[in-house]
Amino acid sequence: MTAVRFENVRFRHPGGVEALRGVSLTVAAGERVAIIGQNGAGKTTLVRHLNGILQPSSGRVLVGERPTAGRSISELAASVGYLFQNPDEQLFASSVRIDVEFGPRNLGCTPAEATARADEALAAVGLSAQAQSHPLHLSLSERKRVALAGVLAMRTAVVVLDEPTTGQDARGADLVAAVVETLAASGRTVIAITHDMDFAAEHFDRLIVMAAGEVTADGRPADVFGEAQVLERAAVEPPQLFRLAQRLGWPQRPTGVQQFVDAFAARAPR
């Protein structure tokens, strides 16, 4: 089943540059897709089409096999959860709990159901103890995770995460990674924009590279990270252990710690 589809999507900012220059791609339900590429490549512009904040200048965007054209932002919000890059664009309430419950209540959940969802979402992002805090009394990295909890509490079929690991410390990054794994395990579709190549390689099964408003590569991480010229044009570089394996002349293309050590084990004489 198709979760989202872009059909030759072009987008021009009013009076400005063409940010998307003919993007076509299909994401199947349950896929984990990371979008990588340079600042200004069009990544955020692309995903903003999924919740109706932007409509294409030409081409079509489909969510759940229906075009977004003519559907309201609130209707799309029931299908697509969206974590903004800047949490301060997203948070508004006087307490973390009210903020996280707002989404489910808006979807028509009973207060008890909204509370239950908020509890689960806050536990997932490691902020149960902060439920009564004012969001502005939390750190930027915590505010980002509050915003993430708000998205999780919506329980949408598609979850879009714009730079979810930004500013997270080691524990926060692990929590965000666990959220991606949990979402995937429950069959949800996750689309993330990230500059963290290790995160992309370790937790996503498909990478999409964007440069200058176009998709320049699309495939499994181990394959995409092997395309040196595409990566250079997109100003990204492979994960650290992938580069280390290259440097050591190994034939394997490990994208994470586990695969790297597996590759090392395969080489080690017994």
């Binding site: 410390d169 080691a170 524990r171 990054a173 994960p239 650290q240 252990l241 280390l244 710690v257 050590v261």
Partner: peptide, 14 residues
């Protein structure tokens, strides 16, 4: 709780 580099993590696992 500052984490560790991927290099350190790989060596630990190995």
């Amino acid at each position: 709780a500052i984490g560790s580099t991927r290099y350190t993590r790989a060596a630990r696992l190995a």
